[in-house]
Nucleic acid binder design. Structure first.
Lengths: 230, 230
DNA sequence: ACCTGAACACCGTTCAAGT
DNA sequence: ACCTGAACACCGTTCAAGT
């Protein structure tokens, strides 16, 4: 009779949503590599095969994670600001949604056009690019690049020490910085000069706004160039 | 006595270089997921454990792949062109080196600063950014973003049909386009309008120059803004 | 409808041993 | 120095079966 609660998880009943939530939590804690059918099942006190009733296979589970991420995007209220300000706001909203889950952010790339919440983001982005004066094809190209760039911006580089506390990450950064500083200043003068910043880039405290600004600025310049045919 | 040549591979003798070459070939043919210690060993007619003499573990093998990619970058000859033209040329050279191997291009991100050929690319990039007037920290930020953006530009999205011939890829694209075109034009007018281009983006024929131009243009505008303090 | 049990064909990696 | 053999603790997934 001491059967329920095989694990810590409360055994409500399995569902797509519960599985996805568990998967994201697991990824946050131990990285995408820890997200395994078997570990997920264990976390829910259930047999691995139980998950296969809710998802066709693991890829669909990952799709589900991406869908959840997109669904968390808080669209900025529509206003009459110029298109580039609106675009910046939209990209920042996307960053805000992905940023808390860097281990799974990369999944967003493959699934944008395969789920409703992703399509909503795509639709808004394309709409703003059309307002900027780009045609349908150009907007698609730029939009695709924008999404992948933003995703990359907030993605943890794989191979980072997971499950590691903040202290361990600090250590890794220090080691990296030291090894960069130890390079020959004759052969790599600029790497050595930027050692601190380069080592710091390997972390969640990276400056995402810089990247966004760069992207939007580039698009603005292109749009103006197109219009004035300069 | 019919012992040699367990497989097609000529059994010269194992080496780091040979293993890396085999790994890249395997990834090109069947995707990164097929790159497995065991399959690699098999391709070389050798026991899986044989690879562990040449590489500490699989991560080091992946590092070796990235190093090979960077070593194939053909640096444009130093000239007196303006820094932005030189930067564009350098990024295009990086694209040219990564483009033939989209399945493993993503490995370049984690390994830039961990191998000599990667450091060479980083050094040149930082040097040009310093010429543009950015300080050491800003150059590092921008440079890091640039690399990941370029890598993203040429990376196959995971989940693409591998081992699939060109025909199968064509099919996949057609299916994608059809499903996008079938969306409600009221809810997703811009996605529907861009359906063709969006479906085509999922392929190796993507326009990389557009992305590079966008990035460089963005940097130029930022640099000018900085200098003229506008 | 929702889940279990047993089985299959895979992984990376360690450790001791061979030559 | 370079490689093998056996073993361990994992994977995703199928298929038949239970309730």
């Amino acid at each position: 009779m001491v059967k329920k609660r095989d694990t810590a998880e409360a055994r409500e009943r399995l569902s797509r949503d519960a599985i996805v939530t568990g998967a994201i939590a697991l990824a946050d804690a131990e990285g995408l590599g820890a997200v395994t059918i078997r570990r997920l099942a264990q976390a829910h006190g259930v047999t691995p095969m139980a998950l296969y009733w809710h998802f066709k296979d693991k890829d669909q589970l990952l799709d589900g994670i991406a869908e959840r991420l997109f669904s968390e995007v808080q669209f900025p209220p529509a206003d009459s600001a110029p298109w580039d300000d609106q675009l910046r706001a939209l990209l920042l909203a996307l960053v805000a949604a992905l940023r808390p889950h860097p281990a799974v952010a990369g999944l967003a790339r493959a699934s944008v056009l395969s789920c409703e919440p992703g399509l909503a983001v795509a639709e808004h982005t394309l709409s703003l690019l059309r307002q900027a004066g780009f045609d349908a094809d150009k907007s698609a190209e730029i939009g695709g690049f924008l999404l992948t760039a933003v995703v990359t911006l907030v993605s943890d580089e794989p191979g980072l020490a997971y499950g590691a506390d903040a202290e361990a990450r600090e250590d890794a950064m220090r080691v990296k910085r030291a090894s960069l500083s130890a390079l020959s200043p004759r052969r790599h003068p600029n790497v050595v000069a930027s050692a601190d910043a380069l080592a710091a880039c390997t972390g969640p405290e990276a400056n995402h706004e810089l990247g966004i600004d760069m992207l939007v600025t580039g698009i603005v310049c292109m749009a103006e160039g197109r219009v004035t045919s300069r």
